[in-house]
Amino acid sequence: MARPKPATFDKQKTVADNRRAKFDYSIEDTLEAGLALSGTEVKALRAGEASIRESYAEVRDGQVWLVNANIPEYTHGNRLNHEPRRPRKLLLHGREIERLFGAVERKGMTLIPLSIYFNRTGRAKVELALAKGKQTVDKRHAIKERDWKRDKARLMRDKG
């Protein structure tokens, strides 16, 4: 029998966040994926160096790849250091890959990484989101909503 998935992801140490993603995209669904890394990439991640700002994921040949994520070279690495922007394989179940492929092909959605983190067991994981791009009008509406919430909280705090 399969182990039930936790409701929230078990993030112990967050290495990289894509904070702009929630502003640029409307997030439909999130899932956790493992990350296939080489030796010095793990050391660079443990040092807290990574950027996923311009990265995305794509389904190619029945596998999911993280493209354009920057994990800089490890400072104490030697000639066997890794390439910083190489495509990295994401580890997912076959059913999940099929579901993501169907959503990307039929609904015109994109796969974007929200964060890279280490879980409780010390494994590098990626929080992957199935998202749809927002129009400029939607972004303006989100800014208005955020400003109104801030002003409302300020008024409530002042009036008591």
Rank of each mutant, 00 (worst) to 15 (best):
A2E: 15
P4L: 12
K5G: 08
P6C: 00
V15S: 02
V15Y: 00
V15P: 01
V15M: 00
R19E: 10
R19N: 07
K22N: 14
K22S: 13
D29M: 06
D29I: 02
L35T: 03
E41Y: 05
K43D: 04
G48R: 04
E49V: 07
S51H: 09
I52S: 07
I52R: 10
R53D: 08
R53T: 15
E54N: 15
S55P: 05
Y56M: 02
Y56T: 08
E58M: 09
E58K: 14
V59S: 13
G62P: 15
L66R: 00
N70T: 08
N70Q: 04
E73T: 07
Y74F: 14
T75G: 14
H76T: 09
G77P: 05
N78M: 10
H82Y: 11
H82S: 06
H82I: 12
E83S: 13
E83P: 02
P84M: 06
L90D: 13
L92W: 01
R95S: 14
E96V: 02
E96S: 09
E96P: 02
E96W: 01
A103E: 15
G108S: 02
L111D: 08
L114S: 04
L114Y: 07
I116R: 07
N119S: 15
N119A: 13
R120I: 02
R120L: 09
G122P: 13
G122A: 11
K125M: 11
V126W: 00
E127P: 11
L130A: 08
G133F: 07
G133H: 07
G133C: 08
V137A: 12
V137T: 11
V137C: 00
V137F: 10
V137E: 12
D138N: 05
K139A: 00
A142V: 12
I143W: 03
K144D: 08
E145I: 02
D147M: 00
K149P: 00
D158T: 07
D158R: 09
